[in-house]
């Protein structure tokens, strides 16, 4: 039971883990945008180096990070290969001409650029958001970042509370599922053999008690919350307030330096540009 990890949070206790989650969300978005600003060899090299730097700062083992890349490896290679064949450059860039297949040097550049861009976007968002920030921190941060929407009568607090409760109940419900499955197995249920539709049907006696119990839990939780004076986000205070510290300031400054580096390289660096 205790092996269930929510998200991919990796508690290495690095500086990155201690940054304000609100700022990490913003930095992740900025980082994605910046990866689209890059347009030449030098700025892409800087982008690639920045991704490596993020991994090093957050002290997440390379193996763990590469595992999350593996899932999108196919898309990376697919788009890169498409770019090699699809890009039409000027005649002097033509490298290979083989019937209808023509490969230009600009095509190879573009393929590499796109691969690096996808790679860095994935590394960036997973380092900033999933590896170094717990789901609950993310929920808190989103609640605060989105709080201006309250003016438009969007129930931001209620959504955040729902997220928190969902996260809180995942282990409880998983435990319960295991219990019900063993109870049904003891009564002769078979979840592992037969066709797919047969196995899906075998799950019905698990899902029905699970749903009934989840609704009962929800009712009891609502009563318990009411008893503890819960009446929505109105007038609520918080034990743990998110704080913007000097560490976060350093983070912002580093990001600013990185952006200016990219922009300067885009403008002044020589060589092929997209």
């Amino acid at each position: 039971m205790n092996s269930i990890a929510l998200g991919q949070y990796y508690p290495s206790g690095s500086v990155m883990h201690r940054l304000d989650p609100r700022m990490k969300i913003i930095l992740a978005i900025v980082y994605m945008v910046v990866s689209f600003l890059c347009n030449n060899v030098f700025s892409f090299v800087l982008l690639f180096l920045s991704a490596i730097a993020l991994v090093l700062i957050s002290r997440i083992p390379l193996k763990t990070v590469l595992r999350s890349i593996r899932a999108i490896m196919f898309i990376m290679i697919f788009t890169a290969v498409l770019n090699i064949f699809w890009t039409k450059g000027s005649p002097e860039e033509l490298l290979i001409s083989w019937g209808i297949i023509q490969i230009y040097s600009s095509g190879i550049y573009n393929a590499a650029f796109i691969a690096i861009r996808i790679f860095c976007m994935i590394i960036g968002t997973s380092i900033f958001l999933t590896y170094t920030t717990t789901p609950i921190q993310l929920t808190d941060a989103l609640e605060q970042l989105l709080s201006p929407l309250k003016v438009l009568h969007i129930p931001v607090h209620e959504f955040a509370m729902m997220m928190t409760i969902a996260l809180r109940f995942i282990p409880t419900i998983v435990e319960e599922t295991e219990k019900i499955m063993s109870a049904q197995k003891a009564r002769g249920a078979d979840f592992t053999s037969g066709s797919l539709s047969k196995r899906a049907k075998a799950l019905i006696p698990v899902l029905i008690p699970l749903f009934i119990s989840a609704f009962r839990r929800a009712g009891e939780l609502a009563t318990a919350m009411t008893c503890r004076c819960y009446r929505g986000g109105k007038g609520r205070t918080k034990l743990n307030v998110l704080r913007f510290t000097y560490r976060d300031l350093i983070g912002v400054l580093m990001m600013a330096a990185f952006i200016s580096g990219i922009v300067l390289l885009n403008i002044f660096a020589p060589g092929y540009s997209m």
Partner: peptide
Amino acid sequence: MVFQNPDNQIVATIVEEDVAFGPENLGLPR
């Protein structure tokens, strides 16, 4: 009021945050 099933009364994912839930609802200072 304390109920029968402890699982169905705990709101937060960290012990101290759950204990803080009531006082937070009362709007007390940090």
